[in-house]
């Protein structure tokens, strides 16, 4: 087990190196000069050159890449071209917002879909199962941002459970911050919950049809015993892998959801910094997103190994 974790950690670092290189290379290849962008086309060549030197753009590619890689460990990504302040300071608050939003949403997915998926699988063909099938279809086909609008209208304007657009900074009021995030988190979670329920239900039914389940019945197990002693451990594994993938998507969907709920998160920052060619900010953001996704998939790998002895090699 320890060996497996170390192997996965080394793999994570290698992936991070490759990803960082790709990210850096792409922004290197994007046409346009950030210095010209900043100063405007009428700036003198001397001024542009001076700015390039100041930002370190005159140095060779490999040297700058090396600086970028080391910055991952020191969390010092340089200075934003647009705002003139350090990128880490600029991103810190936004990272916190998105981290809380994604993690909260993932938690909602797990807490809701696991019990429901198990229940529906256990009572296949029952009333709830019959209701769930079309409901699931619907939930899966509505994009999160539409759900976000619906939630804003319903809970924000009709029931007045929160003030639409009234984002509360976590520095000012942490409880209020978490409360506000519940609504976008739910909007993000609903389609994923539907997918998880469907996946889990399918996997449980599939596992219950396998030979070892028949063996378990032949020993005198009832359906509940079979489900909890045998089937569940096997059936949750694809769902856990899937939740790892969802985590990646949470960040991307989150960018849209932020707009709907007017949350000053990573997404707005990302869009504005791409259009102004504020490369230190974009690179740092993309790298942080990649890191988040990798950490989540590392966690799902470890859970997988805990559940399945065949993986721990």
């Amino acid at each position: 087990m320890g060996k497996y974790i170390i192997k996965k950690l080394i793999l994570l670092i290698i992936t991070l190196l490759i990803t960082s290189f790709v990210i850096f290379l792409i922004f290197e290849l994007v046409p346009g000069d950030p210095a010209v962008d900043k100063l405007g086309t009428r700036a003198t060549p001397e001024a542009v050159e001076a700015l390039r030197v100041k930002w370190g753009l005159d140095k060779p590619f490999i040297l700058r890449y090396f600086q970028f890689v080391t910055s991952v460990f020191t969390l010092d990504f340089g200075v934003s071209y647009t705002y003139g302040i350090s990128v880490s300071n600029l991103l810190k608050e936004k990272m916190v917002i998105n981290l809380f939003l994604s993690v909260m949403s993932l938690m909602i997915v797990v807490v809701v879909s696991f019990p429901l998926g198990v229940y529906v699988a256990k009572h296949t063909g029952g009333l709830i199962d019959k209701i769930m099938i079309p409901l699931n279809q619907t939930a899966m086909s509505i994009p999160s941002f539409v759900l976000g609008l619906l939630i804003t209208f319903l809970f924000g304007m009709v029931f007045k459970l929160f003030r639409p657009g009234g984002y509360v900074s976590y520095k000012a009021d942490f409880g209020g911050f978490l409360y506000f995030l519940i609504f976008p988190a739910v909007a993000l979670a609903i389609p994923k919950i539907a997918m998880c329920i469907r996946l889990l239900r399918g996997n449980i039914l599939e596992e219950a049809d396998k030979d070892y389940s028949l063996t378990a019945y032949a020993r005198g197990n009832n359906t509940t015993g079979l489900l909890y002693r045998h089937v569940l451990k096997n059936a949750v594994m694809p769902t856990i892998t899937f939740i790892g993938m969802i985590a990646a998507d949470m960040i991307c969907s989150g960018i849209v959801i932020e707009q709907v709920f007017s949350i000053p998160g990573l997404g707005q920052m990302l869009i504005s910094s791409i259009s102004t060619r504020d490369f230190p900010v974009v690179e740092a953001e993309v790298l942080m997103i990649a890191l988040f996704i990798m950490v989540i998939s590392f966690i799902t790998d470890v859970i997988h190994a805990i559940l399945d002895p065949r993986v721990r090699i």
Binding site: T215, A216, A218, H230, P309
Partner: peptide, 30 residues
């Protein structure tokens, strides 16, 4: 009666064992 008065041994011992449980608990299960 199942597992108590009637014991059942299946054809394929790999598939008829639960892959994620140790052998001991499976032997004891009845």
């Amino acid at each position: 009666i199942q597992g108590n008065e009637i014991g059942f041994v299946f054809q394929d011992p790999l598939n008829s064992m639960n892959p994620v449980l140790k052998v001991g608990p499976q032997v004891e299960e009845a």
